[in-house]
Simulated assay, not measured.
Amino acid sequence: MQTKPRHINEIYVTRAIAILGVLIVHATSYTIIDMKGTAYYGFYNAINTFFKYGTPTFILLSSFVLFYSYSARPLTGKLMASFYKRRMLYIILPYVLFSVMYFLYHYDVYATYLAQDEMLSEFFKRLMIGKASSHLYFVFISIQFYLMFPLFLWFFKKFPRWSIHAFWIGFLIQWAFVFSLEQGWVTVENRMSISLSYMAYYFTGVTLGMHFDKVERFFSATRDALRSKWGVWTALLWLAWAAAAFGHIYVQYLSRTGLAAPSQMTYQLFWNAHTYLSAFMLLQVSFVIYRKWAPWLVNTLMHLGVTSFGIYLLHLLVLNKYNTTFQTGDPVMYHLFIAGGFAVSLVVSWIVVGLVMKFIPGYWILFGAKPKRMPKKERTTETPVDNKGQRVSSSAP
């Protein structure tokens, strides 16, 4: 049986916050063009840039859960066969089916420049590079990582001392790739669809997954933890995160408005720092949310986290339909139109995925796996934790 992280509920909360970020970025994507030259451009640029933490956070979390789940188990052919079976059924199959859906949705566009006998080859080309829709690159790079996962798992199990250093090794690999692209030594299309662009996140998942017991007190952010050395690290994290987020927003603003032309290295630096630190910050926030917020609200967020993969796959169909159905030229109504796009894509996708998962036995074909039991916070008071940030059992009702 696959081992689950001790704080899987908090991870579901983090996934919920991450999917909200993804939806906000996509809902505001048109504003980067529509609002150019207006007084609102700075606001929409800030919103669109700030919430770019979503996909990188999903990447780090997926690696973290995998290494937590598999690193303590004997590495056998049976284990890897089970691993690939689950990826095939719950990740790759939904990816292929949604690639078909998005390709068919945009069929009329392809028909304007492709002959009928070219359609099938165009689909397979897009399927193999994660481009049947703009957001499916996330699943495509995840598949790349799954192909490398057994090798990484074998290495870090055989040389466990290196696992504590994995996070900075990931940075070296990622930035060697970025530097090679900048220097022209390597040429690739769609650099952000290549897993090497995210190795800092994947390898940080190695360190967290194999050594979470050493840092979970930091993420717990309890009063006791904040009064220890972890309080200093928390302050440094939040200060560095705020600076990186501001820098990322500013660099994007300069680039999008044409006021300056920051290099790709500069952009990558601020994007990497902002989104990387955001994943840590969101994990810490999720621990606090789980511990302190009302059960009904926490349970709502955890349900959103459970359904987040399905929502990720589906939401652009909903958003695209909304954007083509509702249009406005009124400056005031435009802001409501953008907010409505976010709300509709969230609510409709969430309802559809939730109902399918609940009532249709073969839900996994479209939306992937779900836990055998939905996570639930039962207590109506703050959950007691020890000085390591772990929940303490109690006989209280």
Rank of each mutant, 00 (worst) to 15 (best):
17 I>W: 00
289 I>A: 09
323 N>G: 02
72 A>E: 15
375 P>N: 07
25 V>R: 05
241 W>G: 07
374 M>I: 10
216 E>F: 00
83 F>E: 12
20 L>H: 04
277 L>W: 01
79 L>S: 06
267 Y>S: 14
104 L>N: 03
301 L>D: 06
359 F>D: 12
35 M>L: 09
27 A>G: 05
285 V>G: 07
141 I>K: 07
169 I>C: 07
175 W>K: 06
298 V>Q: 04
203 F>G: 04
57 T>C: 07
121 S>N: 11
26 H>Q: 11
356 V>K: 09
45 N>Y: 00
196 L>H: 05
347 V>D: 07
330 D>K: 01
181 L>H: 09
332 V>M: 06
293 W>N: 01
231 G>K: 05
203 F>Y: 10
276 Y>H: 09
96 V>G: 06
219 F>R: 02
45 N>R: 02
75 L>N: 14
147 L>M: 14
44 Y>H: 03
255 S>L: 12
115 A>F: 00
302 M>Y: 07
9 N>Y: 09
230 W>Q: 12
262 P>I: 13
305 G>R: 01
106 H>E: 13
196 L>E: 13
327 Q>W: 02
210 M>G: 05
362 G>Y: 09
87 R>H: 07
160 P>T: 11
3 T>V: 15
225 A>M: 07
359 F>T: 15
311 I>T: 13
88 M>Y: 00
74 P>T: 10
332 V>Q: 06
294 A>H: 10
210 M>S: 00
392 V>C: 07
173 I>P: 00
310 G>V: 09
7 H>Y: 05
377 K>D: 09
122 E>Y: 00
380 T>F: 03
386 D>Q: 03
269 L>F: 14
55 T>Q: 02
325 T>N: 10
79 L>C: 03
113 Y>E: 09
133 S>C: 00
201 Y>E: 15
321 K>N: 15
213 D>H: 08
201 Y>L: 15
286 S>L: 08
207 T>R: 02
332 V>I: 13
66 L>P: 04
35 M>N: 05
133 S>Q: 14
